[in-house]
Design a protein around this nucleic acid. Structure first.
Lengths: 214, 214
DNA sequence: ATGATTGGATAGTGCCACTCTCCAATTGGA
DNA sequence: TCCAATTGGAGAGTGGCACTATCCAATCAT
């Protein structure tokens, strides 16, 4: 398929596709002649992933490039490759080490992991961007007047832990390592909005159940 | 407190605070003289909420203004006020009605709500932006090659339903209606990243448990 | 032949959160 | 009392970034 068809099938303008090619988010097509290149379903698939990352995940183009580099790097071991790709995704502000609340929040996060018995997460500690983003967000919540301690977070973490098992089950159904990494990235970017929508719908339902629709 | 102090205490530059005042995100201070105004803790609190909305929630300034208008509108009933504020928050793309997959996804969402027995959510249907965003996201997942049906979503929705009960419990502890609305908005904006971090940490933990750290 | 189309390169656009600059009024220290 | 510093206010300007409009030479379709 040529660029125009790739554009039509994906709903992305040719100009934008050219931009992604230039930025290295999309591999070049197979050159047929000096003025034509051939794209296949892999390109279409990658293009949709790129759109998901940028439009839904709001990942900056530079970050998306790094994520995709890990997705494509089959020299790495499966776990490292997947972890590296996912760890590139968060682009929220890092914790403010000047703020004394940061140390408090970090200790609380560590305490939560202990309560949960999540040994690996405890070992990794602030190496994981998720640990750091969690810390930074708890600091913000505190400043807004809604402090949350480990005990308050515990039931949420346990609930999400059960859901994470489901996630991994689904990932095991994906055959090849390359597809696994891609599926994990897609899940991180597109499945998170699904979860948030479900939670908000659940809140609406529960709220109506308690207080009615008045 | 004067503008400079408000700036210092919030970590937001005076220029940006002036911008928020101009945009109506922050109420004007009490005028002391022709060249001075006095701000109090309510302003500091509101300023932090604005920052959370814009920086963490990535809510456009115009949307934030609408959300805050509902937060401040005490002429509305409690439930409406809260619902209206929260329904302003999503700013993701609406479902593409041209796409035949949209009807499929919408039917699947409705079927999910039926399986869950969420009567209110079913009545509201696509009136809720959350219903629409969920539909649109499922369409995207399908196009990426990861279709999800109602059965696949069910356990997630049930898990999140249990967590939503916790949310409402916590909201009941907040005394006044105005604070309830503000707390709900803060929870939507700041607690969602917390949940996502917890989920990702849970995934890391579960992944390490299954496959080791290699 | 010849006009349309292709992929590629470059410069430009639009958006939007934020910031710079200037101003007159006011404050506060010497 | 004097004058430099500060205050809040208003408008224009800046920067970043995803995207797009414009050209161009090569090639394809008829």
């Amino acid at each position: 398929m040529r660029l125009a068809e790739l554009s039509e099938r994906s709903g992305v303008s040719t100009a934008t596709i050219k931009y992604y090619l230039r930025e290295g988010l999309l591999p070049a097509g197979r050159r047929i002649s000096a003025t034509q290149a051939d794209y296949d379903d892999a390109h279409l698939r990658r293009l949709r992933l790129v759109r998901a990352l940028i439009q839904i995940g709001r990942v900056p183009v530079a970050t998306a490039r790094q994520v995709l580099a890990y997705v494509d790097d089959d020299s790495l071991g499966q776990t490292i490759r997947l972890g590296a790709a996912l760890w590139e995704l968060p682009h929220e502000p890092e914790p403010d080490e000047e703020d004394p609340q940061t140390a408090v929040a970090r200790a609380e996060v560590d305490r939560l992991l202990e309560l949960l018995g999540w040994a690996t997460a405890r070992e990794l500690g602030a190496l994981s961007p998720n640990h750091r983003v969690l810390t930074a967000t708890l600091v913000r919540l505190t400043h807004l007047g809604y402090p949350m301690d480990a005990e308050a977070l515990l039931p949420y973490a346990q609930g999400l832990g059960r859901l994470a098992e489901l996630d991994l089950d689904r990932l095991e159904d994906v055959p090849t390592p390359a597809e696994k990494v891609e599926a994990a990235v897609a899940a991180a970017v597109l499945f998170e909005p699904v979860l948030l929508c479900l939670r908000r719908l659940a809140q609406e339902e529960e709220s109506a159940r308690r207080f009615g629709l008045s």
